[in-house]
Write a protein that binds this DNA or RNA. Structure first.
Lengths: 219, 219
DNA sequence: ACCTGAACACCGTTCAAGT
DNA sequence: ACCTGAACACCGTTCAAGT
């Protein structure tokens, strides 16, 4: 399991160590700080590369060293931008989950909306193989989900779910989705065929949780 | 994160490399093969040490090298008994889950028995910190649970749950229990106080799953 | 068959030094 | 402040050699 020489797409790989300020294009009015035109390293660039490498080669192939290599530097340079590997993984989850769309609550069909949201998260993990594995080391998925937690809480509140139950449900639900995604990643890496009836199995788990919640909120 | 000199309990640490056949006690009739009296290394001894070290120092502190060190040999020696680290982790889970007690089905209160079984698994993981983390790399917990899966299926059958739903429920249920145990391990390793209301939170998840199952099995 | 020492090809992280 | 080379203290695994 190693990272190949990388004939990956576009821009990133063409940015060698010789990139300099003189390549600047467009207006550069008086006070534009240097960072605005793209410093060699940044948290965003590091997270970008981490996600790209996970998608291309799987979670295990991504290391501080492989990221640094692609950015044309040594591993030590990354530590000016992220504290350690754990923080990097957390930021990767944050970046991906920021794309998670949760609808405005419709009290008539809040449970369907919850089901759809959980499927949406799985879809996101499937589009970014390896990222789900980053969540396993985290104490709680919530840390990477601050942005969307409020919208999820609103959805559940529309169904009459108490704040406490809602918080616990989000915990359990995200844990379930992430676990399924991690399993799928492992199968994919072993080049095993996707488990038959995988979709039904996932739907059943979602159904268990939502039905349980509807029932418990009813009384 | 390193393994301390080990002032661990009883027998294991006193078995030095000088252990010899002459310590044999009891009858040794004609044909007893040498393995019967305890070879220096064996899968069981390796798994024993792995579990002991996880309990004492956490999952991350246990490596092929730390296990070999305690057994008075080098890491290469372990590979005569286990194929790799993944297989070792799987055997650790198998050993611990073999202690999982699942009651004979009582159709009157099958759902309570399911609840109690899930609490029983969490109790087992709590008694063996670090072991839950071994399950995360496994494709499915089932691999380490062959022994008890049949008894769980019987329990669910007594509640009128279909075989397919039962299999899926066991998957989801075990995944949930293991995830909660892993979270608790991480908190413990960070010396953080156990999350307040942790017990209630776990019970809520169990309740979601069992209520959902009862409802879905009802129709 | 079982065990070993030594090596291979890696890790994450630190640190003094440079700009 | 940001970046670097070199080093530290590890990993899992392999392999030729021993018994």
């Amino acid at each position: 399991m190693f990272v190949e020489p990388e004939q990956r797409s576009s821009t990133v790989s063409t940015l060698g160590p010789m990139r300099s300020r003189s390549f600047q294009v467009g207006p550069d009015p008086a006070g534009t700080p240097p960072e605005a035109v793209g410093p060699r390293l940044s948290v965003d660039r590091i997270v970008d590369v981490a996600i790209d490498q996970m998608r291309a080669h799987g979670y295990d192939a991504v290391t501080m060293r492989s990221i640094a290599r692609e950015l044309g530097t040594g591993p030590a340079s990354l530590y000016a931008h992220v504290a350690n590997r754990d923080e990097l993984d957390q930021r990767v989850v944050g970046r991906v989950c920021a794309q998670w769309h949760i609808p405005d609550p419709d009290p008539e069909r809040w449970d369907t909306q919850v089901r759809e949201s959980m499927i949406g998260l799985l879809t996101l993990f499937r589009a970014n193989p390896g990222v789900a594995r980053c969540t396993l080391g985290m104490v709680s998925l919530d840390a990477g989900l601050l942005q969307v937690t409020d919208r999820l809480l609103a959805l559940l509140a529309a169904g009459g779910v108490s704040d406490q139950h809602a918080a616990w449900f989000i915990d359990v639900g995200c844990l379930y989705v992430a676990s399924v995604a991690v399993e799928e990643d492992i199968w994919r890496e072993r080049a095993a065929p996707p488990r038959p009836a995988g979709e039904e199995r996932f739907a059943f788990g979602v159904e268990l949780l939502v039905t349980g919640l509807r029932e418990l909120a009813g009384d």
